[in-house]
Amino acid sequence: MSEVLETPVTTAKLALEGVTSGYGHVEIIKDLSLEVRPGEIFALMGKNGMGKTTLLKTIVGLLPARRGRILLDGADVTKRGPKALVDRGVAYAPQEQPLFQDLSIRDNLRLALPSDKALAAGLERVYGHFPFLADRLAQKAGTLSGGEQKMLIIARAMMTEPDLLLIDEISEGLQPTVIERIAAALKDERANGTTILIVEQHLAFVLGIADRWAVMKLGQIDDAGAIGPDTEARVLEHLRL
C-alpha cells in the first residue's frame, strides 16, 4: 500500500470509507477505501471482473453501499441516489448502454440538463471539444460510429460543467486519434478545475493524462501510487495474464 491512502491536506473531492457493495448474495466491493483529490485525474485500473464498474455504480448511488460511507466534498452522500449526486455536480459516463440509441444527438445532450434554459450554453461548451456534434444534432445516436459515440458520451457528461466526472472505460476499442481527442478534452476539463475519476484498462492512455492511479483486485485496492517512471512496470505486473 502507498501514499494514496494518506490523508491529503485539503478535503478530498471524493472519499470512500470502508465501502462494501454487490448484487444479491455476492459482495463485489469489499471494505474499499479511496480518496480522490480536488482537480486531479485519478485512474482506476484492474482486470475484468474485479469490481471497477460496480464501484462507479456504487459511488453514483445506482447500487446502494451496504457498509461504509461515501463523502463528496466532505458531505455524506451514501445511498442518496443518482439524482442527488447529479444535483451536487457529479456526472457519470457509464460503459454499458451509455446512450439513448434511438434519440438524436441533441436530445441525448439535452437530457443531461435539468431544463432547456442552459442548453445553448452547454452545447457551445461541448462543440469546443467535439465540433462534429454541431453539424449532426438531428442524427440518431445509434447511427454514429463507435468513436463518435464515445465522444458523445463524454460530451454529454460535460454538458453540466460538472465538478466531478466519473468515466468508465472510455478508450475501449477506440482508435488512437479518437483517444487523443478525448484525452485533450479531459485535460482541458482538469485545467478548469474538474476532478476526474477514470476506470481504464488502456495503460498508455492513463500514463498520458492521469495524476495518480490504483489497481483493483477482487473488490479491493491492490496497489496505488502517483504516476511516475515506475508506474508502467508496476501496473503491468498486475495486469498480465
Binding site: 443518482p82 447529479v86 444535483d87 457519470y92 457509464p94 439513448f100 443531461a112
Partner: peptide, 23 residues
C-alpha cells in the same frame, strides 16, 4: 416537450435516465 422526452428516456433506458439525474 421536455416531459415527453423524459418519459421516452425512461422507456428506452431507465438506468441511464437515472444516471443523468432524471426524477
Amino acid at each position: 416537450t421536455r416531459l415527453g422526452l423524459s418519459a421516452r428516456a425512461v422507456i428506452m433506458n431507465e438506468t441511464l435516465a437515472r444516471i443523468l439525474g432524471l426524477d
